[in-house]
Amino acid sequence: MRRWLNKLRKEQHYTQQQVADGAHIDRAYYAQIENGTRNPSMAVATQIAAFLHINPSLFFSDHLSEPFEIALTNSPIVVAHCDLDLRYTWIFNPHPDFKMSPVIGKRDDEIDENPGTLALMDIKQKAIQQNSIVRKRIAFPLSEGLIQYDVFAQPLYDSNGNIIGAATAATELEN
């Protein structure tokens, strides 16, 4: 079951029928996608993702390329995408304090408002507004204390070259 999809749909106050209508697919087909008995095509995943304002790659995150997944899983690196409103559309390898499903669709300040999350939002916004790469060292208060990250943000583009958000890569630094 794709619990993250079910939770995201409910958080946005949609029924399965509304998502299916918004994605131009049959409700029964959407229900099968949500409960995990069917996998959407890339076209259908894109339609659902557009309606829910997420990245379609979330549907295929279980099928990431093995070298990428092996290299980054349990590493001190977090990779993420957000939309123009700075809401997460995709995240890989988040810090253990964060679970993927509650993060998708939310802004950093909705997850935890502190100087670190506000600084992270600021560099994402700068990358989008300035259409440039932004890099900054940011400290986040996490369960094991104040953790420093080297955060790299850059604009995220659609296939037509329009900025649709920001991509970030954050590397935990040794104390």
Rank of each mutant, 00 (worst) to 15 (best):
A43Y: 03
G145E: 04
A28G: 13
I91G: 05
H63P: 10
P102T: 05
I91V: 03
K136Q: 13
H95M: 07
L64W: 10
A119N: 10
E172G: 14
I123F: 01
V103H: 01
Y149W: 05
A50C: 10
P96T: 14
P76T: 00
Q16T: 06
L72D: 01
Q125I: 01
R137M: 14
I111V: 09
I133F: 15
C82P: 09
I133W: 13
A45F: 00
R9F: 10
A49E: 07
K7S: 10
D122L: 13
F98K: 01
M100P: 04
T37S: 14
Q12E: 04
Y88I: 03
F140C: 13
D83I: 08
G161F: 01
R38C: 06
L84M: 06
Y157K: 05
D108A: 15
Q130H: 10
E110F: 07
S143K: 15
T89V: 14
Y29L: 04
L118W: 05
L120Y: 09
V19S: 03
L72Q: 02
M100H: 07
L156G: 08
Q130Y: 13
D122I: 11
N39V: 12
A20C: 07
P76I: 05
E110A: 08
C82F: 03
A139P: 07
K136R: 12
S159Q: 14
C82A: 09
Y30T: 00
S65G: 12
D109S: 11
Y88L: 02
Q47G: 09
L5S: 04
N175K: 15
I133C: 15
P56N: 09
A169E: 12
P96Y: 12
A170D: 01
N160I: 15
N6R: 12
V134D: 10
P40V: 04
L120E: 08
L173S: 02
Y30N: 02
Y149S: 05
T168P: 09
Q17L: 13
V151W: 09
E113G: 14
G36F: 00
K136M: 12
G161V: 00
W90F: 06
D150K: 13
A43H: 08
T117Y: 06
Y88S: 01
Q154N: 14
E174A: 09
A169G: 10
F152I: 09
Y29Q: 04
P155W: 04
N162P: 12
Q47W: 07
I33V: 01
S41P: 08
T46D: 11
I48S: 02
K10V: 15
I138H: 08
Y29V: 02
N35E: 07
H53R: 11
I70L: 08
D122V: 11
H13A: 13
Q18V: 05
Y149E: 02
Y88W: 05
M1H: 10
Q32F: 07
Q130E: 15
I48P: 00
D85S: 07
D85G: 04
R87Y: 06
Y30W: 02
A20H: 04
T46M: 01
E110Q: 04
F98V: 00
H24Y: 07
I91K: 00
R27I: 00
A43I: 07
A31G: 12
S132V: 10
A49P: 04
P102K: 02
G145L: 06
F98R: 02
S65Y: 15
L118Q: 06
N162K: 09
W90N: 06
Q18M: 08
G116Q: 03
E66G: 14
D21N: 14
L120F: 12
D158F: 06
Q16L: 07
